[in-house]
Design a protein around this nucleic acid. Structure first.
Ligand SMILES: [Mn+2]
Ligand SMILES: [Mn+2]
Ligand SMILES: [Zn+2]
Ligand SMILES: [Zn+2]
Lengths: 143, 143
DNA sequence: CTGAAATTGAGATTAAGTTTCAATTGAAAA
DNA sequence: TTTTCAATTGAAACTTAATCTCAATTTCAG
């Protein structure tokens, strides 16, 4: 299904669904969870397929534009992505002790954001909420 | 006041409040709104004071650690900062058409976040909420 | 087929941010 | 004041994620 969507997206822009782009798409949707571009590149290299680092980055940008994938954070060590198609939207809590990530969703939160957008006549397309702090496990460990 | 706070922060870590660090601190708190490191460096260079690019970056990191300043976003073209001391916490809506920024605050939003943190036994220290979309002006212009 | 347009990959390039290190400064102690 | 030593500075080198270049290759509509 994501293949179909990407296909349509590409055709609309006069682009082609090449072997390399397919390989990137397939690997991304076989990964459970978050990933970094370099990691993705190595996985693809390890599998039977192929796609250069340049193609991986280029395809990643296209996938973000198509809405199938999101860049959920940028650190000094690079970006982190996840595929969004097939997943319910969610936000992240990040433990600054262990770098663990907790995903969460709150209908309430989403509604309030809509209210805020209306208030400012702002047409919100998407958002990122990142809560940084200490996770349960790390709190216990430090005690 | 922010000078005093920074001073204390530095002393606690066995660091010194030098002329360069003072210059950076002063300029940051004289800027109304968001700024980028390079811009800050040029302003300082332009004023009577001095501080190398390296010192600007180093001081910026210290200020973030001290809690007086926050890095509110990282784009492919670098980071954006703002001083938080003396300002009420707020979040941002960013127009992807004109790159304009709308600041907003919602008590409701903050409360819900606290609730979510409790639910996961997560000790939240700070957060960043960025809503991307199209602002009022750009919506009109496009019609 | 054919040909125009898109794509690829290896390597060069970019640029924000960090690190290096010799020279300088700050300030506590003598 | 003078001593002393850790902290600081700046210029330039370095790091590295991400983008760009461009000749060679692939795609696909006609
Ligand atoms: Mn996630
Ligand atoms: Mn702001
Ligand atoms: Zn943790
Ligand atoms: Zn706008």
């Amino acid at each position: 299904m994501e293949r179909r969507i990407f296909q349509n997206f590409l055709v609309e822009r006069g682009l082609k669904l090449t072997k390399e782009r397919e390989a990137v798409l397939r690997e991304i949707f076989s990964i459970h969870g978050h990933f970094e571009p370099e990691h993705l590149y190595l996985i693809i290299k390890g599998s039977g397929n192929k796609a250069s680092r340049a193609s991986v980055y280029r395809t990643l940008n296209l996938l973000v534009e198509s809405g199938l994938v999101e860049r959920i954070s940028r650190t000094d060590k690079g970006s982190v992505y996840e595929h969004t198609y097939g997943h319910r939207h969610h936000d992240h809590m990040i433990c600054t002790e262990c770098n663990g990530v907790i995903e969460f969703y709150s209908e309430n939160l989403e509604e309030i954001q809509n209210t805020i957008c209306s208030k400012y006549d702002f047409s919100g397309k998407n958002h990122t909420l990142e809560i940084r702090g200490t996770c349960r496990t790390c709190i216990k460990r430090k005690k």
